[in-house]
């Protein structure tokens, strides 16, 4: 089996501090994998390393293969191509991921026309406008025409995250990386965005790397999980196995904590 994303013995350091140690996992095409961890677990750094976006000062060792291409040590200009087609990222805070001075329609149009150019079928004018509206419609934004003309600050948090997802989809990636995509959102909005992600990933047969601290959210979103603690994977496996019969004490303590709130909601405490 050739994995779409193959992380092998990844280590990330800054100075003398090791932030991620000896991490290995794979994501097959069409597969949904979750990285679970609390703050300082290195889960977000792993996502950045997967696309070669680690900030300066952080050094990655080991191997990260994205669509068969080695990411670590590859110059940025060669990775740009890969980032556009093989993988796209959706971040936690959509307000900082969007340009505040541009109408969102234009922001969605950029990756769309870039991808179209790359495929040899350039889009422009009304064809491009139509593609933007179709994409906004696909991420279930009501009244796409009005929203395409809006600026990010005129939209709600949930609408902005839908725009960010639309921009990621515009690249038609094989792998969608979502880094805490619903953490900044209200509970009811979170449920809508999770449903949307679930539908899109299935419809487009994308692989999903879902990064979160929220166990119930991960449990409902992915097939396989990697539990990270202080930069090390403590447990890996199918969701049902890891959450049903956790092997590591840390996983058990996380599950016990999550379950206590679950039980309280069910009226058992």
């Amino acid at each position: 089996m050739s994995a779409l994303l193959d992380v092998h013995r990844l280590t990330i350091r800054t100075g003398t501090t090791t932030l991620v140690r000896d991490l290995s996992f794979q994501t097959a095409s069409g597969e949904r994998v979750g990285l679970i961890g609390e703050s300082g677990s290195g889960k977000s750094l792993t996502a950045l390393a997967a696309t070669g976006l680690l900030p300066a000062g952080l050094v990655a060792e080991g191997s990260v293969e994205l669509a068969g291409q080695q990411v670590i040590g590859t110059p940025d200009n060669q990775l740009d191509q890969l980032r556009g087609t093989a993988a796209a990222i959706v971040f936690q805070e959509p307000l900082t991921a969007l340009d505040p001075l541009k109408r969102v329609g234009r922001q969605v149009a950029e990756p769309l026309s870039r991808r179209a150019r790359r495929d040899g079928r350039p889009l422009s004018g009304t064809a491009l406008d139509g593609a933007v509206l179709a994409l906004l419609d696909e991420v279930a934004l009501s009244d796409p025409t009005r929203i395409a003309r809006a600026y990010p600050h005129e939209l709600s948090g949930g609408q902005r995250q839908r725009i960010a997802i639309a921009m990621a989809l515009a690249c038609r990636p094989d792998l969608l990386i979502a880094d805490e995509p619903t953490t900044a959102l209200d509970v009811t909005t979170q449920a809508e965005i999770l449903n949307l992600l679930d539908r899109l990933v299935r419809e487009r047969n994308m692989a999903l790397l879902f990064i979160s601290h929220d166990l119930p959210v991960v449990a409902n979103t992915v097939e396989r999980v990697v539990v990270l603690r202080k930069g090390e994977a403590v447990e890996t496996g199918p969701v049902a196995t890891v959450f049903g019969a956790p092997q590591h004490d840390y996983t058990r303590s996380l599950l016990a904590a999550a379950r206590s709130f679950d039980d309280a909601l069910e009226g058992r405490s």
Partner: peptide, 26 residues
């Protein structure tokens, strides 16, 4: 929690992700 009356409360409760519940098979 056992018997929410208002539609908003019902929606809020339904939105909270739970650990078990949903089947993970496609």
């Amino acid at each position: 929690l056992a018997n929410p009356q208002h539609p908003y409360t019902q929606r809020l409760l339904a939105s909270v992700p739970r650990l078990k519940s949903k089947d993970t098979s496609p």
